[in-house]
């Protein structure tokens, strides 16, 4: 019941994303070689209750009091070799996971995090 719907929406999302690419391209500066400071800032954003608060729902190595609502954010480089895809999920996860059970906030779409902040979080996530 659910899968065809998900697939169809997935396709739709992909075409929507293609037209939005210019808007949501990750900045290549971060992608190339993040500094230790970038990584530290990304970690602070991901762990902070006020900002990313990814720990509310995801286990992340090194994080305390993590929730278990979303999948653990581990082996990120291996699982998400495509940085753009990871960026897009954080920007608006609803395009990838359209079901009612997805409560991950659309961080970019709803201006919770800036493009730059999302990139810093990715720099950090790619360290493990």
């Amino acid at each position: 019941m659910r899968n065809p719907v998900r697939l169809a929406t997935g396709l739709l999302a992909t075409s929507l994303l293609a037209s939005n690419l210019a808007l949501t391209m990750p900045s290549t500066a971060n992608a190339a070689s993040p500094s230790a400071k970038d990584i530290q800032e990304g970690k602070a954003l991901a762990f902070s209750r006020k900002e990313g608060n990814c720990l509310a729902c995801h286990m992340i190595p090194g994080g305390q009091q993590a929730g278990d609502i979303g999948p653990p954010l581990i082996a990120m480089k291996a699982r998400f070799p495509d940085r753009q895809k990871l960026f897009n999920i954080i920007w608006d996860s609803h395009k990838y996971f359209p079901g009612p059970a997805n409560i991950m906030p659309p961080f970019g779409r709803n201006h919770i995090l800036t493009k730059h902040q999302i990139n810093l979080i990715i720099d950090f996530l790619y360290t493990h």
Partner: peptide, 15 residues
Amino acid sequence: SCAGCHTYHSGQRLR
């Protein structure tokens, strides 16, 4: 939505 947490993720941990 309320349901997002209290239905679909009930019993799971938020932090």
